[in-house]
């Protein structure tokens, strides 16, 4: 009991002390409202979420909470101001675009240098072989998507062996629609089956299985992602990026035929609700400075997978190993708080 009282006093005391260092504490947090962060369903998003939470808690005296849900659900919650932060926002869903249009949310920062990368991949050993594993290169001349009809026998579909199989994005993701249109735009409908894996887990399991068995596979993938750091993938070249053609691929309302184009690189940022932005300019400043290189991020993700630890552990380790970089994102008051609180 005595211990409890002492604890409470210490806690209250430290709380007062923390509020005293008002220089870094946003108005949102000093009124004791928790910052609700969307729990992202993929690893890199989880890492950004944990990183933001770590900095907010230790540097800015904020309470943070993670809210789980599918992408669509958490995005809708951000627009309706029920969530404050949406880490690793790709800015490609209708919900987000409408939310920005209505000034309900804003995207802050450029958190991955060079942005995202996505496209159609085959394992590297399909093109270059792997002498160590005694895998011969079975398609050394496969360079671009337009070469694919020649190689359909290599990627044969289990159900219809006259065609190849393209492993698309999981059902219902935006990339699924875009890839389905790309199949038509690149005139692959007669040669390839558009196979949807259902979930990200099933897509990853299929890719991991093909790599483990040294078998060919044609699949869609993206960076940043764990598997990108784990396996050597070979990206197939596409037609050059053209804004007009990309619109025919990515615009949901488009009913006309699409023309081929490479996917653009997306700038990744933090989605923040308008209410939070108004009451936490300090955090907005942090988010606008926060940036990792793709190498850093893929390294973090691959390590998390090897060590089998969660994003929270990886965020702590990242901060420990990159203290200077992390400090450069924060104000000097926040750095002071952070040095005091982070253990």
């Amino acid at each position: 009991m005595k211990k409890l009282i002492i604890n409470t006093i210490v806690l209250l005391g430290s709380h007062l002390l923390l509020s005293a260092s008002w220089g870094a504490t946003p108005q949102w947090c000093s009124s004791d409202k928790p910052v609700k962060i969307a729990a992202i369903t993929w690893e890199s998003g989880q890492f950004y979420g944990e990183l933001a939470s770590l900095l907010l808690r230790n540097g800015y005296n904020c309470k943070t909470e993670f809210v789980t849900g599918s992408t669509a659900v958490t995005e809708a919650a951000l627009v309706s101001q029920d969530l404050q932060v949406w880490p690793e926002q790709w800015n490609r869903t209708e919900i987000i675009k409408k939310g920005i249009g209505a000034k309900k949310i804003e995207l802050v920062g450029n958190i991955l240098q060079g942005g995202t990368m996505e496209g159609w991949f085959v394992p590297e050993y399909v093109v270059k072989g792997d002498p160590e594993r005694k895998i011969a290169a079975i398609a050394p001349d496969l360079k671009s998507i337009s070469d694919l009809p020649k190689y359909k026998a290599i990627f044969a579909d289990d159900e219809d062996s006259t065609k190849g199989r393209f492993l698309n994005c999981p059902t219902g993701w935006d990339c699924e629609m875009i890839n389905s249109r790309k199949i038509k735009a690149y005139k692959l409908t007669d040669d390839y089956v558009n196979f949807r894996p259902g979930t990200g887990g099933a897509l990853d399991a299929t890719i991991a299985s093909a790599f483990a068995r040294g078998k060919p596979l044609l699949f869609y993938y993206w960076s940043p992602a764990t598997l990108m750091g784990k396996y050597k993938m070979h990206k197939l070249e596409e037609s050059a990026y053209s804004e007009a053609c990309w619109k025919t691929l990515a615009d949901k309302s488009n009913t006309n035929s699409a023309c081929p184009s490479d996917s653009p690189h997306y700038q990744l940022s933090f989605g923040v609700s308008a209410g939070f932005k108004a009451e936490a300019p300090e955090v907005i400043e942090l988010f606008s400075k926060l940036q990792l290189t793709p190498e850093m991020l893929n390294q973090v993700l691959a390590q998390a997978s090897v060590k089998k630890v969660g994003a929270d552990v990886m965020a702590r380790e990242f901060v420990k190993n990159n203290r200077q970089l992390v400090n450069s994102w924060m104000t000097s008051e926040a750095v002071g708080n952070f040095n005091k609180n982070f253990k």
Partner: peptide, 12 residues
């Protein structure tokens, strides 16, 4: 489910 996908291929 996912080990089954790795062992027996994806799908039906």
């Amino acid at each position: 489910m996912l080990p089954a996908v790795m062992l027996f291929s994806i799908g039906k």
